[in-house]
């Protein structure tokens, strides 16, 4: 089997997880988004890295 040093990969996974968490918390708190909220929830959770980033760039309604 492929041996991978998990100590090296772990920080990446943690960063990915923080990104996801921040996006979800923000999504729950925010009143309105561009487009339906449930759709953003799916995108954030399912599309790793790109999902939260897309949400922050286009999903958040500034005001």
């Amino acid at each position: 089997m492929v041996d991978i040093n998990w100590a090296l990969i772990a920080p990446i996974l943690i960063i990915e997880f923080i990104l996801l968490l921040v996006a979800i918390v923000d999504l729950v708190k925010v009143k309105e988004t561009n487009g339906p909220k449930w759709l953003w929830a799916i995108i954030i959770v399912l599309v790793s890295i790109l999902g939260p980033v897309l949400y922050f760039i286009i999903g958040r309604r500034s005001r």
Binding site: I4, L8, E16, D26, F56
Partner: peptide, 28 residues
């Protein structure tokens, strides 16, 4: 407030780390 201080650094970190790691693990 719009979380840019959280996500921009994280994304930049991921971007700059991606290539060194994938290069190292290319054989695997």
């Amino acid at each position: 407030r719009n979380k840019k201080w959280i996500w921009v650094p994280l994304v930049i970190i991921l971007l700059s780390v991606m290539d060194p790691l994938t290069t190292y693990y290319l054989p695997q």
